[in-house]
Design a protein around this nucleic acid. Structure first.
Lengths: 227, 227
DNA sequence: GTATGATTCAAACAAACGTTTGAAACATGC
DNA sequence: GCATGTTTCAAACGTTTGTTTGAATCATAC
């Protein structure tokens, strides 16, 4: 597929393609991957059933593309933020709170965007963290490898006195807290059907950040090593 | 349900029934509900395909029974612990750390049991928190209603100076942290493929507890209300 | 116009799904 | 022995699944 170099608009913007991606994103959040059929997707997208195989090659490839088009941008922003912090610090160790903000703030910002589907996508992403679907997890692991490396490294340097295993676990806990909070953003977790929830993610950010930093700074548990 | 006091063994223990439940539990963790077919389950359980419909009435009813048989016990233990704490306190407000321990400690204890499938079940439960499957969430909400009510009430009384919305959110965060940690217990989250993880949940409990309590006690975020 | 490539469409494909059926096998009490 | 109720089994049911096909439609360039 050669594209003329002369004057073609840079984004051919296949209408059907995007409608399918948007519909899939939304339906995946509501019904899961296996619970969403291609007929549901193409139906919601006002497209023909065969369009998915034509544009993406198959259902699995569509799932990957749903993640790829947004996750790449999110993780690039995360790395940019970290680059900026490290440049400002000029070699000095970073404040842990800044590192945490760079990672989770960007995610919550995206989750706050209800106009362009950022919220929907973040709900899907959060939901997928706990999804066993083999090849999706594989895909996520690859997509996250660099970001994890960079942020964990930064935390290790920022907290040299804390055992690395401890930092690893706490980063793990933080991701879980965020994922659960975001996953429940639309129709907040039926687990606690307590009164009218305030769902404004603008207020969620400071709330979550206080909690995460409190957890990160908590006193270390007794090492458990016979003493 | 009256049980003869004389000598009937209390559990008739239908062999096939239990084999199906165990196989389903394991396969649901690995493949999700929609990703696990009845043929996979009965195959793994060495049972006939029709056995599920015979013993449970259908796939949905099987899913419910997989949860019911274990979740009822877990939540009963949680309420017992809380009862015990409140009886000991004799009217005085409880220490928040004790409340948190009663809720999450019981869960991690179950997750530590690899002999009788407690670990498998807790992984399934954690995974299911983020699962959209309509009727499963409905079922979980009902099964959790009382426990949530009691524990949130206890936390409200233990932390009268903290806005209830804040406590609610933080309890939410805590559940997320625990769920993510437990869900990754077998084959720890591919998200961070960092070295040989130490997966001993006996060490997970103090680690998680430190983090949760640190988060719970963190300074409140700026209210966000204009100033 | 005509030709070329990209996209859409209705229809069909085999495979897998949850469920139902009716007969066989088993257990248990008389 | 027979009778009764429970459990297992192979086979089939009608749907729904993801994918493929070949012709129709659209756009663009010549």
């Amino acid at each position: 597929m050669l594209i003329s170099m002369t004057s073609t608009p840079p984004a051919p913007t296949n209408d059907t393609r995007d409608r399918i991606l948007d519909a899939a994103e939304r339906l995946f959040v509501e019904n899961g991957f296996d619970g969403t059929s291609m007929r549901m997707i193409t139906g919601a997208a006002n497209a023909n059933l065969a369009a998915i195989n034509y544009h993406f090659g198959g259902k699995d490839a569509l799932v990957q593309e749903v993640f790829r088009r947004r996750l790449a941008a999110l993780n690039a922003r995360r790395l940019d933020e970290l680059d900026r912090l490290e440049a400002e610090a000029a070699g000095a160790p970073l404040k842990p709170s800044r590192i945490v903000e760079a990672f989770f703030g960007t995610a919550l910002e995206l989750a706050a965007d209800t106009e362009h589907g950022g919220r929907t996508f973040m709900r899907l992403l959060a939901r997928t963290y706990n999804e066993p679907n083999a090849f999706v997890r594989q895909f996520l692991a690859e997509e996250y490898a660099e970001v994890m490396d960079r942020f964990l490294g930064a935390l290790f340097r920022a907290l040299p006195e804390v055992p690395r295993a401890e930092i690893l676990w706490r980063f793990h806990f933080m991701i879980g807290a965020m994922a659960f909070a975001i996953a429940g953003l639309g129709g907040l977790s039926e687990l606690m059907e307590v009164g009218p929830q305030d769902e404004d993610p603008a207020r969620l950010l400071p709330r979550l950040m206080s909690f995460l930093l409190g957890g990160l700074r908590a006193p270390l548990p007794d090492s458990g090593l016979q003493g």
